[in-house]
Design a protein around this nucleic acid. Structure first.
Length: 434
RNA sequence: CGGGGCGUAGCUCAGCCUGGUAGAGCGCUAGCUUUGGGAGCUAGAAGCCGGAGGUUCGAAUCCUCUCGCCCCGACCA
């Protein structure tokens, strides 16, 4: 993409409403614009990142055996009356009335809808297990939206729902998601740790939240140091026994403030780490909380009806954009992990209009591929280009100036480390190849 | 939902206390000069001073109401 044609409204100054780093940088780098309190427009660059994250989440869900579908944003209130949540959910639920005076709502979550789909379609235990998910916009009418996209009212979320014959089987579905989450966050370039969580209003008896570590994070977490160094295998057998792997990740002490056990933590001595983090995922096993009132049953092996055991598994996709920035930035701007970067390379033509630099840039642009490169071909000063490119945080920069070009050289800069090297054009191409 | 604050040019803000008809910096446009870390000079364009009502000869400024946004707290992917 040529920057001269791209819609990338960057800001030199920080809009006054933005308090935290990710919000400021998202506004400044031209990722989002606020539409109303807690509601945002995603500009092309931000949208590109959102799509990348979404795709990684999708791939890992599929890999774990979950199947994607798409449920509506607007839901019927009747279903919520069935589960008993229509009155319980409170003002966070945005309620709507249509022209026939029917009660609708903008979905804050989708347990009711998926349970309805399931009960109408599945009859036999032989159809189990099933894990279904979608990636859809949700709305929760937060009293006080803040921190930009991190706590908006409208947000993009992946939510998965598992259906099993009994709670032992459900535990396997739960473990599949647990492992999928570890893999997902690792691929996003994040250090995430699972914490045992309160089950909250959704209910149930098994729940973990996943916290991404970032020094500017909202909540405080305490955990064993060894948890930070754990890695997740690349070739997980999702059909096999996942319990050992889950145990490995949950065996060490880890707790947020609300579940923090000071005595237990103190016994860790020097291995205790206190850090800050951002919640980006939450998984629950809640048994028959929805299947029972809504009559989601299957015929079991013995011919008797069985109420299915369910779990639900959320990832805040749009929140992750902010979380990644909180975890990865410096004074000059964003530093995108390669896996989610909107472009792989920023190509800076330091003297647009100069035949030699133009030609070198054109060659690099074509060879690297216009989809992977953001080419700053604007008639701007070098300083402005450096600042803009650092701000938007692409992993690599290729800096092409007349002095280097005369020697057949360009400069390759790594955004994360700041390291620059002068290399030949061919060498730069080789280094940046897919 | 309790407490506080702010709405003036695209952005950051001054002006308001003490009413007299709109300002700065950045950005934008044009020209010249500059050209490796958000340039310099010159000349421009750009504002229903959030909205409504009121007080007054006169309101960005004072009063009332209203809408919007932000911050602290309680609550959440």
């Amino acid at each position: 993409m040529r920057l001269s044609r791209y819609f990338l409204p960057t800001l030199k100054e920080t809009p006054s409403e933005a308090q935290i780093v990710s919000h400021r940088l998202m506004l400044r780098a031209g990722l989002i614009r606020q539409h109303a309190a807690g509601i945002y427009t995603w500009l092309p660059l931000g949208f590109a990142v959102l799509r990348k994250i979404e795709q990684i989440v999708r791939e890992e869900q599929n890999r774990a055996g979950a199947q994607e579908l798409l449920m509506p944003t607007i839901q019927s209130a009747d279903l919520w009356r069935e589960s008993g949540r229509y009155d319980d959910y409170g003002k966070e639920m945005l309620r709507i009335t249509d022209r026939h005076d029917r009660d609708l709502l903008y979905g804050p979550t989708a347990e009711e809808v998926i349970t309805d789909v399931f009960r109408n379609a599945v009859r036999s235990y032989k159809d189990l297990p099933k894990t279904l998910y979608h990636i859809q916009w949700k709305f929760r009418d937060e009293v006080r939206p803040r921190f930009g996209i991190m706590r908006g009212r409208e947000f993009l979320m992946k939510d998965a729902y598992s259906f099993d014959l009994d709670s032992d089987a459900a535990r396997h579905s739960y473990n599949q998601m647990f492992v999928a989450y570890l893999r997902t966050f690792a691929r996003l370039g994040l250090k995430a740790i699972p914490l045992r969580a309160e089950t909250g209003p959704i209910g149930g008896d098994l729940s973990h939240e996943f916290i991404v570590l970032a020094s500017t994070g909202e909540s405080e977490v305490h955990c064993h140091r060894a948890l930070l160094d754990k890695t997740i295998p690349d070739d997980v057998d999702y059909d096999g026994d996942l319990q050992p792997l889950v145990n490995d990740w949950t065996g060490l002490y880890a707790a947020a403030d609300d579940m923090h056990d000071v005595t237990k933590a103190a016994s860790l001595g020097g291995s205790l780490v206190t850090a800050r983090g951002i919640e980006v995922g939450h998984i629950f096993h809640f048994g028959t909380k929805y299947s029972k009132p809504m009559g989601a049953t299957v015929t079991g092996p013995d011919g008797e009806d069985v109420t299915v055991a369910m779990g639900s598994y959320g990832i805040g996709v749009s929140r992750l954009v902010g979380a990644i920035i909180e975890a990865s930035h410096d004074d000059n701007g964003i530093i995108w992990p390669e896996s989610v970067a909107p472009f792989h390379v920023g190509l800076l033509n330091l003297k647009a209009g100069d035949t030699a630099t133009d030609e070198t840039c054109a060659r690099l642009y074509q060879a690297l591929g216009p989809d992977r490169v953001l080419y700053d071909d604007r008639d701007e000063r070098a300083g402005a280009k450096f600042a803009a490119m650092d701000l938007i945080g692409l992993p690599w920069q290729v800096i092409v100036g007349p002095k280097g070009v005369a020697k057949g050289m360009v400069e390759l800069k790594n955004r994360a480390t700041g390291a620059r090297e002068e290399v030949s054009v061919d060498s730069a191409l080789a280094r940046l190849a897919v």
